[in-house]
């Protein structure tokens, strides 16, 4: 991002704060004007929808801050769904075992990305477009066009069971715990300092003893594992494993991360902003649905928000710069000219 945009974003106050304010505003205005937004059921849906996106957005935020990107996440999710389904068909009937296998597989898939990016020095955008196709392809190899849906009710309800006394699914606690871990790593540990440094200037980071390759490799591993976890949740929540589960979700996640204030060029952004933007998009989508605004309008709004989030600060910065120049020029332009 240009210097100007960086400064402009600084001037707008912390972008995370902007996102939080927007989230609260949308929630309040929605509750007051749209029937049903205030209901507990609404928040249950918002949470269920936000959980997989949030799970994937956590590692994605860190990856984008290092200047890389992982577009294969939705395919890892899809592949995990099919593997969980196939294993169930084959008679693996222990949920913890399925979760463990999924996490391991996700980590391996992420390690493949990491190996191509850090081992061979290839651009992650190209590599993960490749593995996006590869992993989704493998999902079709596993299940073809079949769907596996006959899971035990105990499993499917376990994923969406509400916290006692609320309608919010308990899984949100898992997401919250993971979010805290990721936030602490990013914002309050030497590892996080290294991530910001390499995102701004990988060469200088290496000269300061930051192991750039190692950090990026493990981030891709984490991204794979978290996507697999999202895949398990997806399978159980919808009680259905299909090869096309979560198709296109990668762009939704990237959109949320970018709207959350993370610079696509790396080195800038905060986890709070990303979580706020994930929630903002979820609340907005569901609230407008309740208001009978058609789905396609939501698509337009998502896209516009994303564009506005980068164009807005830039334009504000430009205008401010111009204003400042005009002011500072005023006395130096002598009347003799």
């Amino acid at each position: 991002m240009s210097d100007r945009a960086i400064r402009a974003r600084g001037a707008l106050g912390s972008w995370s704060a902007v996102m939080l304010v927007a989230l609260v505003a949308v929630a309040v205005v929605g509750s007051l004007t749209i029937d049903g937004v205030a209901s507990p059921r609404f928040w249950r849906f918002v949470t269920l929808e936000a959980i997989p996106i949030a799970l994937i957005a956590l590692p994605m935020t860190l990856i984008v801050i290092t200047g890389e990107i992982d577009l294969s996440v939705a395919s890892v999710l899809g592949l995990t769904c099919t593997v969980v389904g196939q294993l169930w068909v084959w008679g693996v009937s222990s949920l913890p075992a399925l979760i463990a296998i999924s996490l391991l597989m996700g980590a391996v898939l992420g390690a493949v990305n990491g190996l191509f990016v850090t081992g061979f020095g290839l651009p992650s955008l190209a590599v993960t477009i490749g593995t996006l196709a590869l992993y989704r392809g493998l999902a079709y190899v596993v299940l073809g066009d079949r769907a596996v849906a006959n899971y035990p009710v105990a499993w499917t309800t376990s994923a969406i069971k509400p916290l006692p006394g609320t309608t919010i699914p308990w899984v949100i606690l898992v997401v919250a715990a993971l979010a805290v871990i990721f936030a602490v790593v990013l914002h309050a540990t030497p590892i996080g300092r290294g991530l910001y440094a390499m995102g701004n200037n990988a060469e200088a980071a290496r000269f300061a003893g930051v192991n750039v390759r190692q950090a990026k490799f493990w981030l891709f591993v984490a991204s794979g594992a978290m996507s697999a976890l999202a895949g398990v949740f997806w399978t159980l929540r919808f009680a259905s494993a299909r090869a096309d589960n979560g198709t296109g979700l990668e762009l939704a996640v990237v959109a949320a991360v970018l709207l959350g204030g993370v610079s696509i060029f790396g080195g800038r952004g905060a986890l709070l902003g990303v979580l706020a933007s994930v929630c903002l998009l979820g609340v907005l989508r569901n609230a407008l649905q309740l208001a009978y605004v058609p789905e396609n309008t939501l698509t337009v709004i998502t896209g516009s928000l994303l564009i506005a989030s980068v164009v807005g600060p830039n334009v504000v910065g430009m205008l401010r710069e111009r204003l400042r120049r005009r002011r500072s020029n005023a006395p130096t332009v002598s009347p003799s000219s």
Binding site: N200, N201, A204, A205, F207, A208, G267
Partner: peptide
Amino acid sequence: QQGLVMELSVERNATLPRRW
């Protein structure tokens, strides 16, 4: 290119090698 991360603050730069 190598000595400093220009976009980061003076203090983050100055403490980067011994952040641990």
